[in-house]
Design a protein around this nucleic acid. Structure first.
Lengths: 148, 148
DNA sequence: TTTACTGCAAAGGGTTTGCAACATG
DNA sequence: CATGTTGCAAACCCTTTGCAGTAAA
């Protein structure tokens, strides 16, 4: 548990408190699991990572932490929900590459130039749409080395 | 039913035949509904559009048409499946803007310059990943005018 | 005439919820 | 100690599937 990790727990606790929720051991374990992961985790992943927590608590905590802005739901190519720490918490905006066959989801970074061009262009599009844009998703979809 | 529409049916029929499937009235109605729409349609949308078809047939046909490369599944912000004609059929690559509150999904086009820069950059990323990339998704996520 | 397709109803499977006991601030 | 949280099991709901009858080629 390094400094960066401490910050994550600290922020999570504060964000929860703001909306009247507590930072329990289950929630701490969940954040810990997500912080350790190098890719979004599915429910089965999380159940494996925190075997003492019940499935329903994991679902409920993911909902609460998502509402608190600590956790983000990732839409893969399959119907399985996957979760990761919100970019706002990690301080690192990133994207995903996913396999349309097995559903695997990995984190990727894109060149800063591209990210910047995206921001500029999308801001314009957003304005015309009448939508209040909160973020964008850029995903690469294909087949992983195992599924080709 | 204009010329463009005829083409869509023609292509759909051919694509199905290739994999040993038939172009039935249900499938034709489904394609018709998707071709008429200006945004991806959900199952309830489709049931409303083709009231004589049973729900299970709609599900089964969507699966078959997706396998045939005629229809594409769109991942919104909610858990509801939405469907549209595949870009390869319409000949028009596009993206989506979606409301994270009500789940509405709309089509948008992005500047060609941006699209081109995306293609270039993503091709590089793909190479490093070991993935065989089939396409990318770029979505704007936010709140529609009704949900703000 | 062969065999894919359809409708109906039942089964599947991930997610949500009611409730009593428990733990947090 | 007031109230948010947990586990268990049942309920939910979108989606899939079995089966017998129908329709496409």
């Amino acid at each position: 548990m390094n400094t960066e990790r401490l910050d994550v727990h600290d922020v999570a606790a504060r964000q929860l408190t703001v909306i009247g929720l507590r930072y329990t051991s289950n929630r701490r374990a969940l954040i810990e699991a997500l912080a350790d992961a190098t890719a979004p985790l599915s429910i089965p992943d999380l159940m494996r990572a925190m075997p003492t927590a019940s499935q329903s608590s994991i679902y409920r905590n993911l909902t609460d932490l998502t509402n608190a802005g600590v956790v983000a739901r990732v839409q893969g190519t399959d119907e399985w929900a996957r979760f990761e720490l919100d970019d706002a918490i990690t301080g690192r905006h990133h994207h995903h590459i996913m396999c349309e066959s097995c559903g695997e989801v990995l984190d990727i970074d894109i060149p800063e130039v591209l990210e910047h061009q995206l921001d500029t262009n999308l801001a314009e599009l957003a304005e015309k749409s009448g939508y209040k844009i909160t973020h964008h998703r850029l995903d690469l979809v294909g087949r992983c080395s195992n599924c080709q």
